[in-house]
Design a protein around this nucleic acid. Structure first.
Lengths: 103, 103
DNA sequence: TTACTATATGAAGTATATCATATATAGTAA
DNA sequence: TTACTATATATGATATACTTCATATAGTAA
């Protein structure tokens, strides 16, 4: 049924819908990064970053590989970048529309 | 700063990230609809539907107009449909990838 | 005015998400 | 083995989101 599909789609969108996770994905846009490179970029506990990475991973948005003690994360599908780009555009349009309305 | 932008982007994505709201947006894809047409499609209290519509509206995803007692909602920007379409595609790809991995 | 209809909102309960602290695990090196 | 480093997870506190029930509001019609 349609509701099941919407349920999984909502889960994926929920994984995207957090400022920290958006920031992580933006960092990963440039390519694979070690957790040890991600944590210092975010003003946040390491344990917290680890959780956010796990949320992204569970939804299939990122994948990871281990190399010794380090773990490297990367974006699974470049389409994710397009999706985020589109949502950014949309947001920009909303703002512009709001500006016009308020004049 | 970048975090402010991510904050608003996350708010918008959060508004999308609920099965009921995805269902509402799918219903509205065909054009403007009265609340009285939306409620019967969703297996849910009228008050609850009203709240979900309000969440979509606050994020600028839908707009409404009143006609007598009735209120009609419509999608603000057709780009929203594209965004949802893209996220559906992405989800499909994840599933296919998962299938392959599990074989 | 009253009675009615369509939609929205207040209040309260439950569920879920996020966060900080502390601890556990896995890998390396001595 | 011990000591160390990078990452993950458990626990508990707090915050946010969702839902239901009851009620309020706005518009219509008598």
């Amino acid at each position: 049924m349609a509701e099941t599909r919407h349920y999984y789609q909502a889960e994926m969108l929920k994984a995207l819908a957090h400022p920290t996770r958006l920031q992580i994905l933006e960092l990963l846009k440039g390519g694979e990064l070690c957790v040890c490179n991600i944590v210092p970029e975010l003003n946040m506990e390491q344990s917290n970053v680890s959780r956010h990475l796990n949320i992204l991973k569970k939804e299939g948005l990122v994948t990871s590989r281990k190399e010794g003690l380090k773990v490297f994360y990367r974006i699974t599908d470049p389409m994710i970048n397009d999706l985020l780009e589109a949502s950014s555009e949309l947001l920009k349009n909303f703002w512009e529309r709001r500006q016009k309305t308020l004049i």
